[in-house]
């Protein structure tokens, strides 16, 4: 579903991603772990082209993100073509970023109405069902400021799912939450995994990674250090940097 080869990303003179090779299989959950500043969020944002890359290739579902190839040359996509690519990839942020002037339901139906041009009654029916699925059927008309962090994050997940994405990206979805609400959000993600959703999850929740991930990828200083099934990578890391990191967080 995601194929990244040699992805480079620079901010000014700062090399943040120094050649990322990473593959995410359809229907699999991949957890991305690594120390702060290692480039996890940056990579995630490159996947849906919130950031452009300076080198390498990044394809989602066989399509290069942000470019098309014509007669052997890369051509940049127009803004609306990039928007169409993004619309198929759901993203959930650490700080939710719910639209503050809209109710939970309005947040969820906005993109289906404007981007997929779904009829209002269909969008509302779908949005109501999605909010019920994340356990918020009684909060349809609540504004984000009236919801707890865990509830806001569940609305954010429903909002992303409303676009019927083929891939979901999560950037530390539980890092901004109170410990007692972390569980409710992880439950929703676990549920999605069971449904076969392809997901790339940046997380510090090692227990969650071990339980849900098919593959865990360890990143440090803009490189993938190693990757593998969770019980292997988390129990018997091959690389000393991985061992050092795990010793600190576990």
């Amino acid at each position: 579903m995601i194929v990244a080869t040699g992805v480079h990303k620079r901010y000014g003179t700062l090399d943040v991603l120094k050649g990322i090779d990473l593959t995410v299989q359809r229907g699999e959950v991949t957890c991305l772990i690594g120390p702060s500043g290692s480039g996890k969020s940056t990579f995630l944002r490159c996947v849906n082209r919130l950031e452009r890359i300076q080198g390498g290739r990044l394809a989602v579902d066989g399509e290069l993100m942000g470019y098309k190839t014509k007669r052997g040359r890369l051509h940049e996509l127009r803004e609306d073509e990039i928007a169409a690519q993004r619309a198929q990839i759901g993203m959930v942020f650490q700080h939710f970023h719910l639209f503050a002037h809209m109710t939970a339901l309005e947040n969820v139906v906005e993109a289906p109405l404007r981007v997929r041009k779904v009829k209002r009654e269909d969008a509302v029916a779908q949005g109501t069902a999605l909010l019920a699925r994340v356990g918020l059927e009684d909060k349809l008309d609540a504004y984000p400021s009236q919801l707890s962090g865990g509830q806001q994050q569940r609305v954010a997940i429903a909002r992303a799912l409303a676009m019927e994405p083929k891939l979901m990206l999560f950037d530390e979805p539980t890092s901004a939450l109170d410990p007692e609400t972390v569980g409710e959000v992880l439950d929703v993600i676990r549920d999605l995994a069971a449904d076969g959703m392809t997901m790339l999850v940046v997380t510090h929740e090692m227990g969650f990674a071990r339980e849900v991930a098919d593959t865990v990828v360890f990143m440090d200083e803009g490189r993938v250090i190693e990757s593998g099934p969770p019980d292997e990578l988390l129990e018997r890391p091959a690389h000393p940097r991985t061992r050092e990191f795990l010793a600190r967080v576990l």
Partner: peptide, 21 residues
């Protein structure tokens, strides 16, 4: 906050839609 526009683009809204809506 910048995150608002970012969340909108991530959903596939165009720049004009993001600004207006």
């Amino acid at each position: 906050p910048e995150g608002q526009a970012e969340a909108a683009s991530a959903l596939g809204l165009s720049r004009a839609q993001t600004l207006r809506r």
